[in-house]
Design a protein around this nucleic acid. Structure first.
Lengths: 248, 248
DNA sequence: TGAAGCTCTTGATGTAGATCAACGGAAGAA
DNA sequence: TTCTTCCGTTGATCTACATCAAGAGCTTCA
């Protein structure tokens, strides 16, 4: 409708249309024109070093972020408890959806390794969404998908064995990497055993032991943080039931 | 902007502006005109009997629902596992946010007692949201709040004791009832011990035992499904830590 | 009115996984 | 290099909760 504003002079920022994540990121499905507008509201990609915080729990909420490369963890601090990991964020995933409409961030987000993120100031995003129905739909869909993921997580945490949790976790990572064009069978765990344990509601020793056992069973191979899935069907079996391994 | 269409003749449907939930429901904050439009897309409130399904897992998704009275539970069926309760829905709460943008419903929703729900066909809601920015904001906020609730649930399920889970659950119900103008200290549990157990990741026997113990400690009084919170501060203490009861 | 299901409670027993503890290796600092 | 720290592994022990089991109120229905 409205003519696009004259091209502002900008630094050599990587543009959405050239981004390798383009196909799986928020602006998926936007028309060329819309994509340009979207590009215009993105703030310069920010570099994060390992351990550096992107958001701090309680800080004012202003922007959503999209992970461009690297990975991050989201943690919640609770009174009298140790921090709990609630999410791992991989490239193409959106950080901050749970803070929309709140004054402050709900958790802290920290880089697990060197990472780049794109910043989307939320007020600008809202203005843009006003005239781009597809973008609105995308936002709803992202949030709704996250709701479903959280629900699956709740089911996992409530009443599944350590084996099932670990197997599901590894399969989940595998899927997410594969959806980003990476190998579903061989990837790097950027998070510590302790992070995994916190996320899955297990002690870090249990994580270590179960991984070792999976390796003994020939289902995976782990060397430090390098993980290989050797038998994905067996892993899927483990994710579903803990002890149907009763030999005939 | 656009003049409101001439008043369609309609049956004597309860209108939003007269609804007792008005202040805490989705259309909160809408102007009079907007509220009228909102009213126009709501389908006749539906009555549900105890045990009757509002949605079935896998059925096509078409509408959001707002609980007007009564309560419902949402369950997910998993291959080779028994159904798991993922949510309890109380009056004023929205059912179906997790299905937006998907073809089909993610879980089944069943009435726990006689209930009324208002249906909001999602396509109509989207059209309306096109011209009502406040409504868009409300929707985002509702989804985001639900994300935070699910996250709190994940934290609860991962690494909290049975006592902490039960205490948090009761406090959560208390808050939700109180936000609806009902007593925070005395309410009816419309769900069975088994439902509570499934929701909290506990065996129903454990639920029963912990409630009995809380009662012995004088924190609550339970008679069947009638619950009274006698000492809410003690309950809050129980929700935070399992054993700081170390006498000085 | 009694029979058949439920739901809830309470007791006895078993176990998955937490916790405690010790050690080896890798990474960063000086 | 060596020192320190963090991370991961593995073993021994302990416990919170699941599971099994039995019985006691309730509804519901014929």
């Amino acid at each position: 409708m409205k003519p696009r504003p004259a091209q502002r002079p900008r630094p050599a920022v990587p543009r959405c249309e050239r981004c390798t994540l383009h196909a799986r990121c928020l602006p998926l499905g936007l028309e060329f024109d819309a994509l340009q507008s979207f590009d215009d509201i993105i703030r310069l990609p920010q570099a994060l070093k390992r351990g550096q915080a992107l958001m701090r729990q309680g800080a004012p909420f202003t922007s959503l972020y999209v992970v461009r490369s690297g990975s991050l963890k989201q943690t919640v601090a609770q009174p009298g408890q140790r921090d709990q990991v609630t999410h791992f964020h991989l490239p193409g995933e959106i950080v901050g959806l749970d803070a929309i409409g709140e004054a402050s961030c709900h958790g802290s987000v920290v880089a697990l390794e060197s990472a780049f993120v794109c910043e989307l100031p939320f007020t600008l995003l809202e203005v843009l969404a006003e005239r781009l129905p597809e973008l609105r739909g995308r936002l709803y869909r992202c949030m709704s998908r996250e709701l479903r993921r959280d629900q699956r997580m709740m089911c996992l945490l409530s009443g599944r064995t350590a084996d099932q949790r670990l197997a599901s976790f590894l399969l989940g990572l595998s899927e997410r990497f594969s959806a980003r064009g990476l190998s579903p069978y061989r990837f790097f765990l950027s998070m510590s055993r302790s992070d995994i344990g916190s996320y899955l509601g297990l002690a870090l020793e249990t994580v270590s032991r179960v991984l070792a056992r999976f390796q003994e069973q020939g289902v995976i191979a782990v060397a430090g943080r390098e993980l290989t899935i050797s038998d994905i069907e067996a892993l899927e079996g483990l994710a579903l039931a803990s002890a149907p391994m009763t030999p005939a």
